[in-house]
Amino acid sequence: MTEINVGRLGIWRPWSQLDPGLAKDIEDLGYGAIWIGGSPAGDLDIADRLLAATDRIVIATGIVNMWSTPATEVAASYHRLNDAHGGRFLLGVGIGHPEATQEYRSPYETIVRYLDALDAADVPAGGRVLAALGPKVLRLAAERAAGAHPYLTTPEHTREARDALGEGPLLAPEQKVVLDADPGRARALAREMLGIYLGLRNYVNSFKRLGFTDADVADGGSDALVDALIAHGDAAALAGRLTGHLDAGADHVAVQVLTEPGGDPRPALRSIIETLR
């Protein structure tokens, strides 16, 4: 496991929706890590700004995309950030998905070569985590990184991921939540976000390994699929889903609050962490 203490709860948010003020507020609420999503640029300027604005919280990438960012570039950023900010940076890297690039080929071999390049640039295995869904890449995360950062999964997947990783490696899944007690309204918001993933075969394959069918991923996703992937309800319901991941073997859960465009995630984040205290 990484020597960096990410705590039991963090937040996941696209880099374009993060700023230093929000980072400080999240730290003050008591979260242990901020995962920068949306494939941030390799210079990791956003991570630099979030680290500079905070004192304790870990800043992690969730994830740097291996196709768009050369390993040498992200390695230089890794060393710069750790030197400047006292080891509070955790590098998350991943392969993305086939539909994102015309050059996508041999994903597993590409991951291995990327990790080899990070090794050559002296990025320690304990300072990086790997985006992983299937058992083969989960095992690689245990062997070549501090652990795994699965995205868009369920507590059932977390249980299977822990079995694949074994004891010791960090398991830090992301979990989407909607703080809204109206199921219809919450599912509508969830489906807006979920739609793109229902056309990506690595995610669809992951859903099917969990027992979902072609019918579940059609037409915006069945209620059963939406409810399994995106927790909704009051703060107690959301906290219960996060606890489900922890009980299934996660060390840490990264919460992604879904809101209407421009919505503030702070109320939900505050309610969740207060409920779990």
Rank of each mutant, 00 (worst) to 15 (best):
T2C: 07
N5W: 07
V6P: 09
P14S: 05
S16D: 13
Q17P: 02
I26H: 02
Y31N: 11
I34H: 03
G38L: 11
G38S: 09
S39A: 13
S39M: 14
G42H: 05
D48F: 03
A52Q: 15
T54W: 13
R56D: 15
A60N: 11
T61S: 13
I63R: 03
N65C: 04
V74I: 14
V74A: 08
A75R: 03
A76E: 15
S77Q: 09
L81D: 06
N82W: 10
A84K: 06
R88H: 12
F89T: 15
G92M: 01
G92R: 01
G94D: 01
H97C: 01
E103D: 12
R105W: 04
Y108A: 01
T110N: 03
I111H: 01
R113M: 07
D116W: 05
A117Q: 12
L118I: 03
L118D: 04
A120P: 09
R128K: 11
L133H: 13
R139A: 15
R139I: 04
R144N: 09
A146C: 00
A148D: 07
T153I: 14
R159G: 13
E160V: 04
D163K: 12
L165R: 10
G166C: 08
P169A: 02
L171S: 06
A172V: 06
Q175G: 02
Y197Q: 07
G199L: 10
Y203P: 09
V204W: 06
S206C: 02
F207D: 09
K208L: 02
G211E: 01
D216C: 08
D216M: 05
G221Y: 04
V226A: 00
I230M: 00
H232G: 00
D234G: 05
A236R: 12
A237P: 07
G240E: 14
L246E: 02
D247H: 14
D251T: 10
V253E: 07
Q256H: 14
T259Y: 02
P265H: 02
I272H: 08
